[in-house]
Computed example of a mutant assay.
Amino acid sequence: MIAIIDYGMGNLRSVQKAFERVGFRAEVVRDPARMGQARGVVLPGVGAFRDAMDNLIAAGLDRAVKEAIATGKPFLGICLGLQLLFEVSEEFGSTPGLGIFPGRVRRIHWEVKIPHMGWNQVFFQKEISLTRGIPDGATFYFVHSYYVDPGDQDLVAGVTTYGQPFTSMVNRGNVFGIQFHPEKSSTLGLKILQNFGELVAKC
């Protein structure tokens, strides 16, 4: 079972249905104990970083996320879920994140319309299991006003240009993060989720 973390933010049912469409059972969970029983974990989300962290902490899900990652389970952060994996966000001042990865979440500050909304290309920086069978430069659907600035460039798995380049995919070991929404990204977005599901099935 793939656990989709419910912390009160995000289009959870859309992600769940997308996994089901590619043949994997996914369950929306809020109980840390139930999350611990999953073979893979997904942290989706849209909205404000600070509210998201407050909700995770209040439900005890911040500790559950760190425990799941420490055990080696495949873990996928989507959009805000990617950003929460980093040390701190500049949204509304400075808000600590989960600290799984070094780096900051910064507001898109260059001269472009925000939020960055719509289809855009992702250029892969290294070979990872999540992008197996997907061509370099494939397009996915984005909606965001903040981006991750990793403190370790070895984390960067994909880059997108919107006015200027920014990190749109990260990976280290069992942990993956993507800025775009695979559940809204048609066939190739579903392929991302299928690849993640297959990785979970091998564990």
Rank of each mutant, 00 (worst) to 15 (best):
M1G: 12
I2F: 08
A3H: 11
I4P: 14
I4E: 08
G8L: 07
G10V: 08
S14K: 00
K17A: 07
A18W: 02
E20H: 11
R21Y: 15
V22I: 12
G23Y: 02
R25K: 15
A26T: 10
P32F: 06
P32L: 10
A33W: 10
R39E: 14
G40D: 13
V41Y: 00
V41I: 12
L43G: 09
A48G: 03
A48N: 15
F49E: 00
F49V: 00
R50T: 11
D51C: 02
D51F: 09
M53Y: 06
A58N: 10
A58V: 03
A59G: 02
G60R: 08
G60Y: 09
D62Y: 04
R63N: 08
R63K: 15
A64G: 10
I69S: 11
A70C: 03
F75P: 14
G77S: 02
G77I: 03
L82F: 00
E87C: 07
E90C: 05
E91D: 11
F92I: 08
F92H: 14
G99H: 07
I100H: 09
F101D: 10
V105W: 02
V105E: 14
R107W: 08
E111A: 15
I114P: 08
P115I: 09
W119Y: 01
N120S: 10
N120Q: 00
K126P: 05
E127W: 00
S129M: 01
S129K: 14
R132I: 03
A138P: 04
F142D: 09
H144Q: 11
S145D: 05
P150A: 09
P150I: 03
G151P: 06
D152L: 05
D152N: 15
L155T: 12
A157D: 14
G158S: 10
V159I: 15
Y162T: 02
Y162D: 00
P165M: 12
F166H: 05
V170L: 01
N171V: 07
N171M: 02
R172T: 04
G173A: 05
V175I: 13
F176L: 10
G177W: 05
G177D: 12
I178L: 13
I178N: 03
Q179V: 06
F180K: 12
P182E: 10
S186Y: 07
S186I: 00
T187W: 01
L188I: 03
G197A: 11
G197E: 11
G197C: 06
G197S: 11
V200E: 05
C203G: 15
C203E: 14
